[in-house]
Structures are given as structure tokens and as C-alpha cells.
């Protein structure tokens, strides 16, 4: 029963997701969505959520989360033009390798967000996470040492994610 707060928190987003997917606000749809949301939340044990996830509504974290969105969009656009350039170029300028970086994030959700962000941005793909080290496949290795790679890949995101999930 110690999962009960997480389950209660999980019901809300799940219900909103149901409403968004059906796209209607009929009373019957709302009731059915509520029942399904409760069932799913109980079965999953409220898994990705926890009482700590309510902290996102603190003004400072919320502001950083909002600022993270345009930063991420810009990073994705840069990543895609970078990849497109490498694909089209007749002699592909690639120098691939797997490098290790360190992260200061502690929570699992924070690390998930970092790994996903790294995968979506220029030339990097998270292969494995062991402890506080991430193994990253880099399409053009610029720094082979841990410190340089961490500075190049991780720190831009960590500035935001440390506040959001920290």
C-alpha cells in the first residue's frame, strides 16, 4: 500500500490521455476513461510516477522545464541537418566510436530523460547505462577522454535536467 500515492497521481495523466485520444467529452466516455485509468494505474503500480514527480509544479522547475522545450527542439533540428549532411556527402565524414560519459543525475526518470535527449541530438546514441556512466556511440568522436566527452555531450542538457529532476 506504499504505492498508493503514486497510483493516485498516475490516474490523472492517464485519464487526460484517454480524453485526448478519444477526443470527446461525452459523460459515458469520461466514465469509461476513468475506470480504465484506475485499472491501468493499479496494474502498473503507478510506476513512472511518484510523489516526487509533483515537484515539477514548483515554479523554478516548471520554468526550467518550459525553457528545455525550445532548447530540445533546436538541438533536434541541428542534429537532423548534421545527419542529413553526413548521409548525402559522397565520402561520408564519419569517425565512429563508443565513449563513456559521467552524469550527475540521480533519479531514474532524470537519467531516462538524459539518455533520450542524448539519443535525439547530434551524432550521439546511448548504448548502455551502468551506474552513473553512460556509454554513448558517437558518429564523429571529437574527444576520446571521459572529461572532454562529458563536457561536449552531457553538460548542455544537465544544466536543465539537474533543476527539473534534481
Amino acid at each position: 500500500m506504499q504505492r498508493l500515492p503514486s497510483i493516485l497521481i498516475a490516474i490523472g495523466p492517464l485519464w487526460l490521455l484517454w480524453i485526448a485520444l478519444t477526443g470527446s467529452t461525452d459523460p459515458e466516455e469520461l466514465v469509461a476513461g476513468g475506470i480504465v485509468a484506475v485499472l491501468v494505474a493499479v496494474l502498473a503500480g503507478g510506476e513512472p510516477f511518484s510523489p516526487a514527480s509533483l515537484k515539477i509544479f514548483q515554479p523554478r522547475r516548471f520554468a526550467y522545464a518550459l525553457a528545455y522545450i525550445p532548447y530540445m527542439i533546436w538541438a533536434i533540428i541541428v542534429a537532423n541537418f548534421d545527419v542529413a549532411r553526413r548521409v548525402i556527402a559522397p565520402k561520408m565524414p564519419i569517425r565512429p566510436g563508443i565513449v563513456t560519459v559521467k552524469t550527475k543525475l540521480k533519479t531514474p526518470v532524470g537519467r531516462l530523460a538524459l539518455a533520450n535527449s542524448i539519443t535525439l541530438t547530434p551524432g550521439t546514441l546511448t548504448v548502455d547505462i551502468c551506474g552513473d556512466e553512460l556509454c554513448i556511440h558517437w558518429i564523429y568522436v571529437a574527444h576520446e577522454d571521459i572529461e572532454g566527452a562529458t563536457r561536449e555531450i552531457v553538460e548542455g542538457f544537465e544544466k536543465y535536467l539537474e533543476v527539473i529532476f534534481g
Binding site: 537532423n80 553526413r86 548525402i88 561520408m92 565512429p96 563508443i98 535525439l120 546514441l125 556511440h137
Partner: peptide
């Protein structure tokens, strides 16, 4: 371009790079 990337790239990890990024955008 994503599809072209997975044809042109030399190994699986590089293919995955293009296959993930270009198709996401």
C-alpha cells in the same frame, strides 16, 4: 534521407543513428 542513411552507412550503430534521428524529425 533516414532510409538512405540505413542503406549507405557501414555498420549497425551508424545506421541506427540516421534511422533514429532523420525519421524522428
Amino acid at each position: 534521407l533516414g532510409a538512405l542513411g540505413i542503406v549507405r552507412m557501414p555498420d549497425l550503430y551508424n545506421r541506427m543513428q540516421t534511422g533514429t534521428k532523420a525519421t524522428t524529425l
